[in-house]
Every structure is written in structure tokens, then in C-alpha cells.
Design a protein around this nucleic acid. Sequence first.
DNA 1: GACAATAAACCGACTGGTTGGTATATTAAC
DNA 2: GTTAATATACCAACCAGTCGGTTTATTGTC
Lengths: 211, 211
Amino acid sequence: MARPITDSSKKPSRELLLEAATELIRTNGYTSTTVDDLCQKAGVSKGTFFHNFISKEELAISAANRWSEMTSGFFRSAPYHQHKDPFDRFLGYVSFRKEILKGDLRDFTCLVGTMVQEVYSSHPEINQACYQSIATHAENLEADIEATKKLYAPKATWTVKSLALHTQAVLQGAFILAKASGDVKLASESVDHLENYIRLLFNKAGLPGEK
Amino acid sequence: MARPITDSSKKPSRELLLEAATELIRTNGYTSTTVDDLCQKAGVSKGTFFHNFISKEELAISAANRWSEMTSGFFRSAPYHQHKDPFDRFLGYVSFRKEILKGDLRDFTCLVGTMVQEVYSSHPEINQACYQSIATHAENLEADIEATKKLYAPKATWTVKSLALHTQAVLQGAFILAKASGDVKLASESVDHLENYIRLLFNKAGLPGEK
DNA sequence: GACAATAAACCGACTGGTTGGTATATTAAC
DNA sequence: GTTAATATACCAACCAGTCGGTTTATTGTC
């Protein structure tokens, strides 16, 4: 049996493999995820795997790039962009990130943040694709942060880029807390503190009690 | 040759293996670190490995527990404890964490935060040891945070525990940024924002420009 | 304090199974 | 009938863990 497609309802093998990679690597990491695991999950054979990717490493790079594109699309169409005030858009982004911290860990944790820990030293090309994804995501926040800063904290000495990256650091750290504890609430509460920080930063009244 | 010790200058094989594990797992992760790698790094044989540990998994658990003890000792003897004001002690802790972000990534990143990403789903016992390490470390901050809160933000609605864990989330996230980018500065700048948050939280005047 | 018996630490060759990757054959599409 | 997509069988390297045996340290006995 071979080439069983042209059935337009079925996704191409390459896409099936990338989806399998996203799910399995998010759950078990890059090294623990074997090519056979990926083929089984995607429902294709090993021949198909190496027809579509020259190596496991190339699959990981493709998965990281695909992750970047998919998350970009996902957040671009999220509702928080509709706010008039850039502060509301920025805070809306963080609140949105908090809202989607629900259900299964495998569904909201970050593929590229997970991979970085394993590959930063041994697989520089995968690492670069991962950093590209994180950095691009952070850069997408910079316009709103810049506008917010101009409006509400024009003299602040921190840089827009550093705050954008800080939001990503908090989220990545929150994922680690959730994984380690098995309790998603710990992640939520860390993002609560990030929200609170952002309000304080722009004099928008944080939680009660800080004056 | 065997039992070559009683030479008080040489460390026991078990300790050598745990040191090797800390270094190699921090660099390459748990799965990528092979038993042979560990033996070579420690300068012992495979027989010795399995004489000291019943499995690779047990070594990882022991390494996580040792990590917990070593970091506890390291931070207990750090200078920030000498401050009179609990706010200064708390902020001093965070500043100290920032100061040690220097030199090689392998020397300041977190063993247990790295392992969690790979093992949380597949090796619950390792994961538990990792969480124990993170949680205990956070708990060690709670007394100072509690005292700071009573003094400077008694009506704040956030919990002491959540703020302690948030500091850990920021640090873990900062490590990911540093690994991904290869630039330690990104980690430092994220910790800058954490310091700034803590100052704002207790009305201790953050960076200029926030009012 | 000599020495035999026992225990603890250690070694490296070996094993069964796994891994990423290859070679080759088969099928579908144009 | 050429080409792209798929499948299966296979391989050499590698992996965690085992095993039989050696060397050193400790302990009990005289």
C-alpha cells in the first residue's frame, strides 16, 4: 500500500508529522521523542518520515518554525487587539495568555521553550529556530508597549524590548511551575503578578493594598 | 584495581557521579545524558555506576535532592541575610540572583528546572524531586516576604506564597531566554523587571519614570 | 598483631533491545 | 513512463542495565 491520498479530507503526511512532533515534544521533550513514536502518532511509515525530512533535527527545526507561524496567527486574531488604548491591548494580551492556561498541560505549554533546554548546547540550529520564535513573538508586543509607554510612563528607563521579553520569561517560568507542581493555578498566579506589575508600571492601579 | 579510596583527597565515586550528572544534565538534559557519558566524566566504570545507583532514574532523583541541599546551603550563607529590613533581605535575594548571572550558562542555570521539562510526564518520581527543590527554595523566601508585606503592604491581596513562586518563575524564564539567545543580558534584564516590581509593590520607588 | 573471613567498592566485557537513518520495492498521479 | 509518495526490511551504532570477577578495607579470632 502506498500513496493512499488524493482524498482531500486527509492532511499531507508532512503536516501530520509536524503535528505529532508538536504534541510529543511538548510532552516528553526532543530527545525522548523517537522517530518511530512520531511515525506511529502521525500514522505514517518511517520511509515517509525520511522522505519529508532529511533528519530528526530538520523536523524539529520545521516544527519550531511552524510553531512560530501558528502562534502568530493565533494571537493576531485574538480579541484583545480591538481595544483603543494601547495599555488595554498590552494588558489584554497578558490576560489572554492567562485565560488559556486551562485543561491539559500539553495544550498550552510552549514547544520551543521546552526544546531550548535540551538543545541550546548540542543542536544550535534547532536552538536558533526556537529563539527566533520567542523573539518574534515578543517583538509583536513591542508596538503596543511602546505606545503605552509614551502615554503613561514616557520617562521610564527600562526598554520596550526588555519588557516584551520579560513577559515571555514570566510565561515560560510559569509553565515550568505548572509542569513541576502539576497545578495550573501556580502558573496563573505568576501571570497575575505580571499583570499587577504592568498596571503599577503605568500607574493604572494594581491590586488593592499597594497604595 | 578497586576500592582505591581512603586517600582522603579523592571524592567517593557516588559524589563524582552526582557532580557529573549536574554538569551534563544542565548542559544537555536528562535523556541526552547517557550513563556512559556520566561514567566517563566522573572517571569511573559502568560497574561503579550501577553499584551506587539502581538506575539512571535514581541517579537523577539523587542529583535533584543534592541540588536542593547544595543550593540551600549556598543561599543560606549569602550576604543579603544580614540586612535589618526584611524588604532589603528580599530584594537582596533577587539582586544576588542577578549578580550571579555571569560567565558560562552551565554554571548558573537550574538543574531541576531543566529536567522538569523533559520528565514531568514520563518520570513522575524525578519530577517530584525537582518540584520539591523549587518549592523548598521558594518557601525559604516566605518569611522575609511575609515580614515585608506586614510592614509595607499589609492590605495587599496577593499571597506570600504566590510572590515567592513568582520570583522563581521569573528566574526560570530568564534562564530560558539566556539559553535561547545565548545572551546572559536578556536574563539580567528580566530580573531587573522583577526587582522593579518588588519595589513598586512595597512603595519603595522603582526605576525613575514610573512616577 | 597476625590473619582469615567477610563486606564494600570497583571494573569492563557483554546483552537484548532501541535508535536514527538507509535501501529498495510498490503504488498513485500526471 | 516518469516522478512523487509511501511502505517494509534492514543496518550499524548506541543505550541502559547485567554479570562474573578483582581489589581493597574492615572485622572477628586467636
